[in-house]
Structures are given as structure tokens and as C-alpha cells.
């Protein structure tokens, strides 16, 4: 295996724990705000590592750029969606945990 394959594989592997921890947070955290916190942070970093890792493994600059574009679009969409859900929850009177 070439160096690029090793680096790409390691990045994909490094991304997986973020997804696992994000899912754990979604299942175990007490309210909607803390769950959003777990998802929006962990999924974004994990997806970035997986996308960049796969792009490096593909050994094609076009494919790497397309994967990075997907990640950036996901970042924008995920941040907006998390903000919308949190603001809607707040507007409907859901109290954040511990307040």
C-alpha cells in the first residue's frame, strides 16, 4: 500500500470515533440542546475526516475536491439546521437542561 493509501485509511479510521461519540451523545444527553451540540460537532469533524481520507485514498484531485465540497455543504446545512431546531425549541418554551 502506498503512503497516500495509509494516510487516507488512517484519516477515515480517525473519523469513525466522532460518529460513534456523536451517536452516543444523541442517545444519552438529557435534552434537545445538548443532543444538537453532540451531533453538530461530532458529525461535522467525523465527516470531514472521512471525506478528506477517502479523497486522499482516491488519488484524484477532482474527486478530493468534490468530497471536500460535499463536506462544506454539509457543514453549512448542518449548522443552519441545528440553529433552526434550537431556536424553534427555545421559541416553543423548552428550557435548556439545568436552568
Amino acid at each position: 500500500m502506498s503512503t497516500a493509501q495509509w494516510i487516507g485509511g488512517l484519516m477515515v479510521l480517525a473519523g469513525i470515533p466522532f460518529f460513534l461519540l456523536g451517536t452516543l451523545g444523541l442517545l444519552r444527553f438529557p435534552d434537545v440542546y445538548t443532543r444538537l451540540h453532540a451531533l453538530a460537532k461530532a458529525d461535522n469533524v467525523g465527516l470531514g475526516l472521512v471525506c478528506i481520507g477517502l479523497g486522499i485514498q482516491s488519488a484524484s484531485v477532482t474527486l478530493l475536491l468534490k468530497l471536500v465540497l460535499i463536506w462544506v455543504l454539509m457543514l453549512i446545512a448542518s449548522a443552519t439546521a441545528a440553529g433552526l431546531i434550537a431556536r424553534t425549541a427555545l421559541a416553543r418554551g423548552l428550557r435548556p437542561w439545568g436552568t
Binding site: 449548522a79 440553529g83 427555545l90
Partner: peptide, 17 residues
């Protein structure tokens, strides 16, 4: 009515995409 200015901004930003 959306309680956040993020969605209109997102729509304007992403529609060309």
C-alpha cells in the same frame, strides 16, 4: 415564520449551488 435569520441567508447562498 422562522425564528432565525439563518434560513433566508442559507437559501440565498445555496440556490445558485
Amino acid at each position: 415564520v422562522m425564528p432565525s435569520p439563518a434560513l433566508p441567508a442559507l437559501g440565498r447562498l445555496l440556490f445558485p449551488v
